[in-house]
Design a protein around this nucleic acid. Structure first.
Lengths: 208, 208
DNA sequence: TGTACATCAGTGAACGCGCGTTCACTGATGTAC
DNA sequence: TGTACATCAGTGAACGCGCGTTCACTGATGTAC
């Protein structure tokens, strides 16, 4: 039962998305806690009051941005961890995937890095929830690996969390490299691979 | 040649420190990019214009806070890494030290976690510089360990960076635990120790 | 298909408020003799 | 030690400006008959 949105609904969605996009753009240079509602509507070209037809506040908009930025990543992450091949193959592929994701969605990545510990509690909470889901999913995928024989659930979750945090660190390093900081792209990729390799070696000798 | 500050200089320092302290307090609930100069002076009880006698802007004040928060940590970090005892001893001691530091200076820790990827470029840069110094110092300390035989400078720096990032992750998890989030203190400590152990195991089998 | 009414996304004026910055100032502290 | 002048941390009034929020509104879209 495919359902076409009415003209009114479609236009509303379009404005809503324009507000989200404009906010994301403005957040490249500031934090959510200083983002003004009028800034956002000005960037879109609608009246300030139009904002309230879509969001209660900029914090509310921020929570929606979290869903947009992280909600769609679950399939990608799971497929990476459960991919076939040996450890080194998987690591190379994972780092490549992170690099491509940062290239494709730099503003989303920056937003998550910035607001993970930012000044807006509901947004921090939304990010924490999504990252906990990631860790849980990685844990389940790791449990499938033969190397995980004998691992407790707790240790698997510990390792999964380490991977998720490492993924975020790597993503934000790629971002810094894009901004023309000291580190270049290739160096970041090499470093990330080495870190993951070291963790992977620790994993293989954990149950000795 | 011990030099006592004049009354005027001493009073100026006192006001300056009061401004830094007030700002740090206000930053528990917001980001630096939304911190107002008038908020800070109001909290201290001086006229808004007094602010300019000490700082050019809130960004400038932020950079000073970075020095206050991280500048004094160098001796502590170095002594932890170069401490005697086996790996597990050192790990337990390091995690304990982090826990105590977060207890003693929660606002400083929160500030660094928040502004590391925050919306104020000079502050991000100041934090990046201090963390790079930490990594360099940890590298030098690690090089002294007998386990580091055969390690390249690059690999040592990779490992040092991994430790520094892990230190920050652990500190911010302790902070979340203090805020009464899902995780409790003990669980965070246990998890941090396990992560460090896994990394340490990876380290011992790196050159095989 | 056409008509009459309901809905509701976006408008625009208005409000009170706190912001950052300027400026000339004051009066305690510092210094030269 | 006392006096005359210099310094300068902190003051307080004033400014123009953009903020979030309220309200009654408009007119295109949706719906019932």
């Amino acid at each position: 039962m495919s359902h076409t949105l009415g003209i009114r609904q479609a236009q509303k969605q379009k404005t809503r998305q324009a507000l989200l996009d404009a906010a994301l753009g403005l957040l490249e240079e500031q934090s959510l806690s200083s983002l003004g509602l009028r800034e956002v509507t000005r960037a879109v070209g609608v009246a300030p009051t139009a904002f309230y037809r879509h969001f209660r506040s900029t914090a509310d908009l921020g929570v929606e941005l979290v869903e947009e930025a992280l909600g769609s990543l679950h399939p990608m992450i799971e497929s990476t961890v459960s991919a076939t091949g040996d450890s080194d193959d998987r690591i190379e592929r994972a780092v490549g995937l992170i690099a491509r994701h940062v290239d494709a969605y730099p503003a989303h990545v920056r937003f998550i890095a910035r607001e993970r510990h930012g000044g807006v509690q509901p947004v921090r909470e939304a990010i924490r929830r999504q990252l906990a889901r990631f860790a849980e999913e990685v844990k389940v995928a790791l449990a499938e690996h033969p190397e995980s024989a004998g691992w407790s659930e707790e240790d698997l979750l510990m390792l999964a969390g380490l991977y998720v945090d490492q993924m975020l660190v790597t993503a934000s390093q790629f971002l810094e490299a894009m901004e023309g900081a000291a580190e270049d792209r290739e160096r970041v990729a090499r470093l990330a691979v080495q870190r993951m390799r070291l963790i992977s070696i620790g994993r293989h000798h954990w149950k000795e």
